[in-house]
């Protein structure tokens, strides 16, 4: 069975984890890989923690749900607590450095824990609205599941209609992606 990269992304409704998952899996598709994305939807989706389960591989993905991820990303304090169950001894756990009061709740069993200043970089260097793209960059940087080129193509595919109206948006998104990759430089999962 081919290696499957398992990614769980968790954030507050509105932080855009589901669109990151969608673009990520579309990039994998463009790359000619197999991808499976299952949103954690429910009555909660309108205000609560939203989780996206993503799997990418060279071969067909066996099962839709997994217990522990290779990389688990949490973007809020509630998300940190919620995704604990998906962290195992092989997991790289990523959370935003600006989240406060979660020291006690960080997983104890993770292979590696990374606090990345994504929110800060987004706010100071870019724009708050591309925070999720920055996160996507970090995931790609850490896992190398898709190439930067295909990631850009997938973003273009999804947001192209917006870029047509304001070309600076394209530049902003692509920079966010690259900044995200930089955030995890030297911290790759494999």
């Amino acid at each position: 069975m081919g290696k499957v990269t398992r990614i769980a992304l968790a954030g507050e409704g509105g932080q855009g984890v589901q669109s990151v998952a969608q673009i990520l899996t579309e990039a994998a598709e463009l790359e000619g890989k197999e991808a499976l994305y299952i949103p954690n939807f429910g009555i909660e989706q309108r205000g609560g923690v939203s989780i996206a389960f993503v799997q990418i591989s060279d071969q067909k993905i066996p099962a839709p749900k997994f217990k522990t991820g290779d990389i688990v990303v949490a973007l809020s304090d509630r998300a940190v607590r919620r995704v604990q169950v998906h962290v195992g001894s092989e997991t790289v756990f990523v959370y935003d450095a600006s989240i406060e009061g979660v020291e006690e709740d960080l997983p104890k069993n993770a292979r590696k824990i990374l606090a990345i200043p994504a929110l800060e970089v987004a706010n100071k260097k870019l724009h708050p609205r591309v925070f999720n793209v920055l996160i996507m960059g970090a995931v790609i940087g850490a896992t190398k599941v898709v190439s930067l080129e295909k990631a850009k193509e997938a973003i273009e595919k999804r947001l192209g209609y917006k870029f047509e109206k304001s070309p600076e948006l394209q530049e902003l998104n692509f920079r966010a992606l690259e900044e995200g990759i930089k955030l995890v430089e030297g911290m790759e999962v494999e």
Partner: peptide, 10 residues
Amino acid sequence: DGYQAKMRES
């Protein structure tokens, strides 16, 4: 089921 309904795969 709901998983099959909502998930994406090729």
